[in-house]
Design a protein around this nucleic acid. Structure first.
Lengths: 246, 246
DNA sequence: CTTCAAATTTGGGCGGGGCTAAACCTGTCT
DNA sequence: AGACAGGTTTAGCCCCGCCCAAATTTGAAG
């Protein structure tokens, strides 16, 4: 029953997990296939094996979803991935994009005890180099993080960037200081999907909705909403920042 | 032709290499099988695949030997193994026996560039935690190290211990300071397979032939044979040190 | 309501890696 | 020399992971 997972199964689990933020979401097998660099037929076959092990449910022609058990396993896969990313960045000097590219190639076969020691040797880090939290060992889920655009004026938060954000967007964002672990405060938010005014490293910046929905944040709990009311101020020039195709 | 090696093939290559110190030696498939934890039939099948790739020669019922190409690949496998061992010991605090046990589980899938960075991050170590040299990147062989028992009086050397040495023997040896990287000087050597008198950490010790043939050494080149002649001194009690089964 | 294109699944193959059981060498002992 | 025991190889089977090509379903457009 509790049979060992193969590396392919672990990878599949991770990709399904990625595409199903909420329990109840379905991932398409075709997306899985291209994410794993594999033919659609292969993806279907892998899903079938996961279903046999009770880790996933498959609704033909509709998609695949993780079971409770599958979600738990996926969380441990994500945990390992993020620890290995930290290793690559902290000990070997890779940047977060490279770490994300390299980790999957060998993380699956890392013995559990080595993962544990690595975690300790890294100083029990709370986040991966992208800025996302490293889930605890037994946890059956990874907390969902809001988008920067979901924040209200007065809120402060710390930036996290998924590796699915396009390189061009990453470059654009880093141009205004929006890199993983950067602190950001929302000053203003226009209604109707209007732009956001944020303060990053002491500088005020304007950000469109599209860009604001690419950036994830973990909110800083201690600092309450400072809030002078959301007075609609005049906004500087907007530039052509919202044309990203993602 | 130059197709990628699978993890099993890399493991097999390493085991064959281990058993064929000199080019021209043959390894038995049965030994391979038990070393790899696999049935004899499977070992034969793996050997066949290595032969197909030009990495090994197979003389049915006699054994398997590495080709020149196979020897080169095996050397790179060994290099990676020893680098990973260093990582496990230097960065994660494992002792050399544990490192040797854990490394094979994930070393095979380590991307080459990560191996390279690891090597740098470790400070370009010359030896693995056992005391054996880490071969250079392009080298097609690993230098063969003599046994402690092969040294002549007056010679100094540094200890290396293979993981094939039994645990009991390791304990016995470490009792007299013969651990990896320990410096040792041969003071005396009796003829006819007689015991050896060595100085380890300033203390003189007596060692039987069997034990002396378990310990490998890299000789220290700088220090010539100091040598007052090999005067046959009286030897202390021998104890029951040579009963190891290995 | 039909038709059709796109996505998905099924069917059929292939190679690696693993197993057991049976056939096969080889060296040794009588 | 002959018989035997033990190690080795072959034969036959299974699973996983991967592919392609053909059938199937779905959903959207006419």
């Amino acid at each position: 029953m509790e049979s060992e997972l193969t590396r392919s199964q672990r990878a599949a689990l991770r990709e399904i997990w990625r595409r199903t933020p909420e329990p109840g979401d379905w991932a398409r097998t075709g997306d899985l296939a291209s994410a794993l660099g594999v033919s659609p037929a292969t993806a279907t076959a892998m899903v079938k094996r996961l279903v046999d092990q009770g880790l996933a449910d498959h609704a033909p022609y509709k998609g695949v979803a993780l079971t409770r058990a599958g979600r738990t396993v996926a969380t441990s896969v994500v945990r390992r991935h993020r620890i290995v990313e930290r290793f690559l960045s902290d000990m070997l000097g890779y940047n977060w994009a490279e770490a994300d590219r390299l980790a999957p190639q060998f993380e699956h076969d890392l013995p559990q005890e080595v993962e544990d020691r690595l975690f300790e040797a890294l100083g029990r880090p709370a986040n991966c180099p992208h800025g996302f939290p490293i889930p605890g060992q037994g946890s059956d889920g990874v907390p969902q993080m809001p988008h920067l655009y979901d924040l209200e004026p007065g809120q402060q938060a710390v930036v996290a960037l998924s590796s699915s954000v396009s390189e061009a967007m990453v470059e654009f964002l880093s141009g205004m200081g929006l890199v993983p672990d950067a602190q950001v405060e929302v000053l203003e938010k226009q209604p109707f999907g209007g732009p956001l005014v944020v303060r990053v490293a002491g500088v005020d910046r304007v950000l469109g909705e599209r860009a604001g929905r690419q950036v994830r944040v973990r909110t800083v709990p201690g600092i309450g909403s400072g809030g002078a009311g959301p007075a609609p101020l005049a906004v500087p020039s907007l530039g052509s920042s919202t044309k990203e195709k993602v």
